[in-house]
Simulated assay, not measured.
Amino acid sequence: MGIKYRKSYKFAVKSSVVITLFSTLLLLVLQYLFFNINMLFTVTFTLLFFAFSFFVLQYRVERFIYRRIQKIYKEVSILDESVLRNQPVTTDMQTLMYEVNKFASDKKIEIESLKVQEEYRREFIGNVAHELKTPLFTVQGYVSTLLDGVKDKAIRKKYLERADKGIERLIDIVSDLDMITKLETNELKLNKQTFDIVELFQNVFDLLEMKADKKDITLMFDKDHYRSIYVNGDREKINQVVLNLIDNSIKYGKENGTTEVSIEGLTDKKLLIRITDNGYGIEKKHIPRLFERFYRTDASRSRDIGGSGLGLSIVKHIIEAHNEHIYVESKVGVGSEFSFTIEKAVKK
């Protein structure tokens, strides 16, 4: 592919004028000293010399700039010579330097971004390996013991039940990873519909009631009786969001605590859903990374409680897939509040 030039004649014109003026003056001096001054000859010489100087300078500067820049592209590994060939070469040095510096700056940003992504990839793979290793080793340990020949039926049953729990955790991790992947690649399509979000919360309360009772945690609305409130969204996915957030408030809540839900009008078209608990709270330093995959504020305690470590990440992806926002506020020793926006709807 040929090189494209974006012509800039400023340098060649100025240089040619200076050289031509000097040459013309020199010619006039020589004519005055040795010959008679011939104005027609002088004017013709000046015009021809200017034209010759201009075209030579313009051509040479273009070739000079291209060759030097080409050399830079070859010597600096972050630059790609093919990119230069697809761009016009200019003889305006200020413009040229701006373009080269901008290109180098863009490449630097790209490299830094790749480094961040690589670090994130390594951390993610390490987290996946760690999360999978624990249930795998648990299952392997119990199966190996059973293969060695355990005669007691009660012990065999207990080991099989524990191995089954390990397998269930593996399935949960793989399922959650699959969902996040689909959400990130937009493969998981939302089935939006109008539904009563108060009823959805009540169903989740009923589902988690026994788990909350074990810690004497009260699940409640901020009012005794909510009327039906309709929203637009994927009911199944929003149910998963609510289930994850309520379940977390129970897992990390204090005994004899509360988990309170409030629904407020944010704008004419949006509602703000608040889920507030009076649990242990989250340290400020953890909040920016709270929705990352496998991120845990207290790794040892979180793994004792259970879960895939992907719940909040899934929540964030589902809310963002609805083009909505999720927020978190927390204070250690006081509790946490997770809130998200959702579109209002009118029952048909």
Rank of each mutant, 00 (worst) to 15 (best):
K102I: 10
T46M: 11
H317E: 15
L26G: 07
T258G: 00
T341M: 00
L147M: 09
L136T: 15
F55W: 08
T181Q: 13
Y295K: 14
E81P: 05
F291V: 05
A321N: 13
F45S: 03
G141A: 15
L28E: 01
L177H: 04
F22W: 00
L177T: 04
E184K: 08
I180Q: 00
D216P: 00
D206T: 11
S23Y: 07
N256P: 01
A212K: 09
V143P: 08
P88D: 05
I250Y: 08
E343I: 05
G309E: 15
L30P: 00
L183W: 04
G306M: 10
F34N: 04
E337N: 14
N244G: 03
D216A: 10
R60A: 06
R60Y: 03
D178T: 11
V61T: 10
V83Y: 14
V13H: 02
K214S: 11
I314W: 03
G166D: 08
T46N: 04
T259C: 06
G257V: 02
V17M: 04
K157P: 00
E337M: 14
D247G: 09
M179R: 11
E264A: 07
V328M: 13
R169Y: 06
T258N: 05
T20V: 01
Y120R: 15
V346R: 07
P135K: 14
G2W: 04
G307Y: 08
M179A: 07
V100A: 15
I326P: 03
Y98T: 14
V61D: 07
D178E: 13
L170H: 01
N186P: 03
Y66Q: 00
D304Y: 14
I319M: 09
L266D: 10
K133T: 14
I72E: 09
T44S: 08
V174H: 12
E123H: 07
I238W: 06
L147S: 06
E75C: 05
I19Y: 08
F54M: 04
M97A: 12
L132C: 13
L30K: 07
F11M: 12
V56C: 01
D213T: 07
L208E: 13
I229N: 05
F45V: 01
T276C: 02
N36D: 09
L183R: 04
N232P: 01
V89T: 12
K108Q: 10
I246L: 05
T95Q: 11
L266W: 10
D176S: 13
V100L: 15
T259E: 02
D247R: 04
L290S: 14
S300M: 15
E184C: 02
D268Q: 08
A51R: 04
I171E: 01
S175Y: 12
Y73A: 15
F34G: 02
G306W: 11
I180W: 08
R122Q: 13
S113C: 11
E123W: 08
L310G: 04
L219P: 00
V17Y: 01
G281A: 09
D152K: 06
L40C: 00
T218P: 00
R301I: 15
K211Q: 12
N256S: 02
S77E: 11
N248W: 06
N36W: 00
K331A: 10
G306R: 01
I287L: 13
Y159L: 12
G257S: 06
V17L: 11
T95R: 10
T259K: 03
V315A: 05
M93C: 08
